[in-house]
Design a protein around this nucleic acid. Structure first.
Length: 208
DNA sequence: TGTCGGATCAGCT
DNA sequence: GCTGATCCGACAC
C-alpha cells in the first residue's frame, strides 16, 4: 500500500521527549492495511506515558513482563494490549532501546476506508463515535493485540503513520489530565493528555 | 492456582 | 449520568 503522505521514518520515533511526540502526533495520519482493507484517520487525541517515572505506565519502575517487553524496544513499533476484557489499546513505542516510553492514541478523525470502519464497528458511517476513544479506534482500524510489536516504519508494514503536512500551533492544542488512571499517585495530575481544540472526535473535552 | 483490578464503550435513563 | 459486559495480566499464596 502506497502512502498518500510521507511515512514517518525510524528517526522520528527516537526522541527521548515522549511529551513532544505526543503533541507532535496530533494531525498525523494513522493508517492500517489489514485483511486487505485500507483504513486511515487523522490523530486528534493522544496521551504520553513516560516509562520508569510514570506510575500510570505499564513500564513504571522498569517493570518488565512478557506483555511490557515491547515497550523496551527501539521506538517505532506498536504496543497493543487488551483491557477491561473487551477493548484493545493502541500505543506508539518511542525513544531508544531500553527507554520504555509510549504514546497512547486515544482518538482519530476518520479519513479513508470509512465504510470498512463502519462495518467493523457495526455502525453507520456517519456515526461520530466510529474512532472516538482508544478501544473504538482499534476496532475501526482492525487492530488487535496480536499486532503488538509491528514496526511502524518498515516498507512492508501493515500499520504506519503519515505526515500529510498538518501542523498544529500550540494555541490549537489543549493539554489536560490523563483519563482512567485514578490509581497512579502524583502522576494522575500530570497534564500529559493532548487533543485538538474543538475537534468533534475527541473522546472527552475535560481539561480545556 | 486463584484473585483482583483495569489507559473502556454503548445503551438506556 | 450510570451501569453492565467481560477477560487478561500481574502478583500473592
Amino acid at each position: 500500500m502506497k502512502p498518500k503522505g510521507k511515512k514517518l521514518p525510524a528517526s522520528y520515533y527516537a526522541s527521548h521527549d515522549v511529551n513532544f511526540l505526543a503533541k507532535d502526533l496530533l494531525g498525523k495520519f494513522l493508517c492500517t492495511h489489514i485483511d486487505g482493507i485500507y483504513t486511515c484517520g487523522k490523530i486528534v487525541e493522544t496521551e504520553a506515558y513516560r516509562g520508569p517515572d510514570d506510575k500510570a505506565a505499564h513500564s513504571y519502575n522498569n517493570r518488565r513482563t512478557p506483555r511490557t517487553e515491547v515497550m523496551y524496544r527501539k521506538g517505532g513499533v506498536a504496543y497493543i494490549y487488551f483491557c477491561y476484557g473487551i477493548h484493545h489499546m493502541m500505543n506508539v513505542v518511542t525513544a531508544p532501546q531500553d527507554h520504555p516510553h509510549a504514546v497512547l492514541i486515544r482518538a482519530l478523525e476518520p479519513a479513508e476506508g470509512i465504510d470498512a470502519m463502519a462495518e467493523r464497528r457495526k455502525m453507520e458511517a456517519s456515526d461520530i463515535r466510529l474512532t472516538k476513544g482508544p478501544g473504538a479506534l482499534c476496532v475501526a482500524l482492525g487492530l488487535t493485540k496480536d499486532r503488538t510489536g509491528t514496526s511502524l516504519y518498515k516498507t512492508s508494514t501493515s500499520i504506519w503513520i503519515e505526515n500529510r503536512g498538518i501542523n498544529y500551533d500550540d494555541s490549537e492544542i489543549c493539554a489536560g489530565k490523563r483519563i482512567g488512571i485514578d490509581n497512579a499517585g502524583d502522576a494522575v495530575d500530570w497534564p500529559w493528555r493532548y487533543f485538538v481544540k474543538g475537534s468533534k472526535y475527541v473522546s472527552a473535552k475535560r481539561g480545556c
